[in-house]
Amino acid sequence: MTECFEPNEHDRRDIEAVLSGDGDAYARLVERHQSMIAGRLWRFTRDKRQLEELVADVFVEAYTSLANYRGEGAFSHWISVIATRVGYRFWKRRDRLRIETPLESWDGPIPPTNDPLEAAEAGRQLHKLLDQLPPRDRLVLTLMYWEGLSISRVAEETGWSESMVKVQAHRARKKLRRRLETLENPSKKSAARDNIQGDES
């Protein structure tokens, strides 16, 4: 994933205008970056209404802390960190309700394709697979595999150290392996579920 880390001139001008009290300038920033933020948050929810709410949450949160943006990196980079944290909080809130998608209906991985419909199906499957994990594990695997971020970028997005990211990714993969094993051997199902919940507590 390539990304520009240099501050964009339009963004810089609009941010200065917002800080001087020009409300319309913030609407321009939202319009410029909302697709990118929706792309990131699409990894966190597949529901369009929830997606819109989360994208709006990101921009409201960014507005309230806009004075803290120092303009050293790209605004898109700064706001994507906020998006990751908003998405993670959403998972944690949802996790308290313990809504699970049964893995029994998982059909196995789809091979790489250029067909958007097939890609959407692969995205749905990946979402469902990662949904089996607690939010912390899910976050690290989503950012590393789905978003294709490097260890250092994941550390930046999550606020963890790089070694913490590696340890968390290792644990997450281990939990996922256990979950997948239950598909091959259903008798392991309850043990795997207990292990995942035990590791989380």
Binding site: A38, P111, Q125, L126
Partner: peptide, 21 residues
């Protein structure tokens, strides 16, 4: 495998400028 296959999976278009403002 799944992440590679899901590369073309994009979100539906959203327009939240009004809500945010």
């Amino acid at each position: 495998t799944l992440a590679t296959a899901a590369q073309g999976d994009g979100p539906p278009s959203v327009d939240v400028a009004g809500i945010v403002m």
